[in-house]
Write a protein that binds this DNA or RNA. Structure first.
Lengths: 156, 156
DNA sequence: CTTCGTGCAAAACCTTTGCAACTCG
DNA sequence: CGAGTTGCAAAGGTTTTGCACGAAG
């Protein structure tokens, strides 16, 4: 990949354990052991997207007593705080990626599931103009681009 | 709404009962009574998005003997034929809208759930350029804009 | 201490599947 | 008729909830 020459550039998804725990504490949530274990796991996903059930499966190997409900509740909390972003990929219900704090969009590899973020909002003015035409007040938007990343293309 | 002056314009989602039945037949599927009842219901959604369970709930009042499995199987078939489009809105799993045959994007009212389609692909060249930078081969993309439609704004 | 969080288990959902009966073409 | 469809019921999966115990601040 030679992405370094043009801007805006792509950057790897954020996954800062300390920052996440900090945000949790700041929001008034307790820093419990299960939450820390889960944050560790999430950071360990390396920017790939995952489902709640994925995480539950993985956590069983590390902290077997950690319950399914805690996984779901923690994920929900992180989404509320925009530390985790729910992405709307196909498949068994919701997937998530780390690092939803800043506004951005996704580039999703259909082979390996890895996600890249667009650090800038690339929504064209055109869409906003069209929305205004029908009296629409835009509250948010979501852009997903699907394709094959370089690694998966060369592997084929 | 005064959308008529600028192009590309918005158009209401397609919902042509005859065309759908025709497409089903052309694809080699039988035109059974349950399928026709379901198509009627889908057309009757008036461009709003819905879940499979929504449809099942509604069909019970009209054709009580029509089973849940038939609803799910019919929806799947229509999606395969691009007569129905799976949209990735939040909420209890998958939602759908009628009229996925042409490439377009969605404008979704967060209050009433009504969906407008962008008849043209408005994905900015920028995103494609960025994708190319990281060696990504783009296979598809999906754009959703959330907001409040004119009717829901004036109702507030 | 008091409140918030956890684990467990069960419940609630949504979706898919197996199979005998049925019906469109 | 015969292949494709349907209904029913049950299974499979995911997500949510209730509650008593436990831990954090």
């Amino acid at each position: 990949m030679s992405a370094a020459t043009v801007s805006p550039r792509l950057r790897p998804p954020a996954g800062d354990r300390a920052a996440i725990l900090d945000a949790l504490r700041t929001a008034g949530y307790r820093l419990t052991a299960p939450r820390q274990a889960l944050v560790d796991l999430l950071v360990g996903q390396g920017g790939q997207c995952f489902t709640a059930e994925d995480i539950y499966g993985q956590v069983r190997g590390v902290t077997p007593r950690l319950g399914r409900a805690t996984v779901y509740r923690t994920i929900e909390r992180l989404v509320e705080l925009s530390l985790l972003e729910r992405i709307h990929a196909d498949g068994p219900c919701h997937s998530y990626v780390l690092g939803g704090a800043s506004h951005h969009h996704h580039l999703i590899c259909s082979v390996c599931g890895r996600v890249w973020e667009f650090p800038e909002c690339a929504l064209p003015q055109l869409l906003l103009d069209l929305s205004a035409q029908v009296g629409f007040s835009v509250e948010g938007h979501h852009v997903e681009v699907f394709g094959r990343c370089a690694a998966c293309r060369s592997a084929a």
